[in-house]
Design a protein around this nucleic acid. Sequence first.
DNA 1: GCCGATTTGTCCGTATGTATC
DNA 2: CGATACATACGGACAAATCGG
Lengths: 249, 249
Amino acid sequence: MPKAIYETIYKDLKQKIETNVFAYQELLPSENTLIQTYSCSRNTLRRAVGCLVTDGYVQTIQGKGVRNIYQPAAQTAFTIGEIESFQESALRNGHQPLTKVLLFTEFALNESQARSTGFPVGTDIYYIQRLHYLDEKPLILNHNYFLKEAVPGLTKEIAENSIYQYLEQTLHMTIVNSKRIMTVEKMTQIDEKYLNMNAEDYNCMAVVSSQTYNSGGVMFEYTQSRHRPDYFRFYDNAVRSFRGSHRQG
Amino acid sequence: MPKAIYETIYKDLKQKIETNVFAYQELLPSENTLIQTYSCSRNTLRRAVGCLVTDGYVQTIQGKGVRNIYQPAAQTAFTIGEIESFQESALRNGHQPLTKVLLFTEFALNESQARSTGFPVGTDIYYIQRLHYLDEKPLILNHNYFLKEAVPGLTKEIAENSIYQYLEQTLHMTIVNSKRIMTVEKMTQIDEKYLNMNAEDYNCMAVVSSQTYNSGGVMFEYTQSRHRPDYFRFYDNAVRSFRGSHRQG
DNA sequence: GCCGATTTGTCCGTATGTATC
DNA sequence: CGATACATACGGACAAATCGG
């Protein structure tokens, strides 16, 4: 698939920043300069720069320029701003991922389950428990609820490899967005057992609950990810805009 | 201050979505229709819609339209995608905020402090401990490190009210962005004492560490916010783009 | 303090590509 | 296939902030 121009420029600038072609705290070449460099329009260049701002790589200051504020240490952590899988985060950081399926069943949701997942009562779903290992250490216990009618033909074998690959490449589903809520919850005996934890040490888990939507507008997945607290680390960059009102901290 | 056009349109559409002028799962009027409604250009309207996508209010599907996926329940939680203060979150959700200053000192950072904050060794800083109450319940213990040379004249009295108001309105500083890392850490005796917690119940805290930058490009603040785990709740919306590679979960 | 050059921010109109129905 | 809808891209215009003389 052919890449968009702004995407190419974004990746090139990002790579230049990561490899210190532009120094930390230094101003990048001006928009007009970069327009000539990439032979593109102003809007296209600005769009690429806008992506870098969202990533926390640069900050733009009206009347001055675009400053590089990228510091490698912070970016190596898990990133919450994007939809990225356990495996990708792992590989990006040079670790060896592994997934084990603990349970693969299907049933209809009762009232309590419906409330916590966001699906209607009685919805037919696949319920899957999976354990994610990093360098042979179990770190994340996942409880997946997949809408059965949206994910026909799902099997335990697929769950052992990549469910999302199946959704996209076989079912041709397009994933659009994912709403997540992060909380801290008490550790359960299940958590203790599978993650090799001792509740007398840490007695809590970092929990990320997510509802994921496809291009049909249907929420096809609810997942609760329970993370070992001592390995949990999420990175975020917040940009000041009119949308965030004024802080008073 | 005069608002930008796209900002006005964004707020109007947002308000219409929140008040169910457009139903959940319904397609909004097409771009061309909205262009006529607001008498604006295509780019301007698309910018407004793009903000709604980022907020998780709508999803756009090429060839089809813009679908409303706003569900009020999820949005009432704390939102991490924006720079928003404790007080604002509180007031937005109809609660009564209160801040108490536990400690107000200044010193130069030693090596260990420098490593954890990201400031250079020997930097002169204001160190402030503050306790945030919601409806008379202590929920968050904040450790603020402010770069002294960037925040001249800071006093305990200002810290009791609003430091950010002082920065913006008196010092005319412009806050640009904030890099945050969320982790789970063991509860300390200080946490226990001030947040009325018992380590035999929860023994962990939700911790948000942030580095905040102003328009001068200087990181002027490092803050560690320690949240009561049972009241901690952060919301996030992740949008699928070329930047996030393909999931394999 | 003013002015002009530079730089980013906002906005417009138009053209073309691509996905959906 | 055509009609509709969103996605990408271009070029131009003016506003607003910064900085140096």
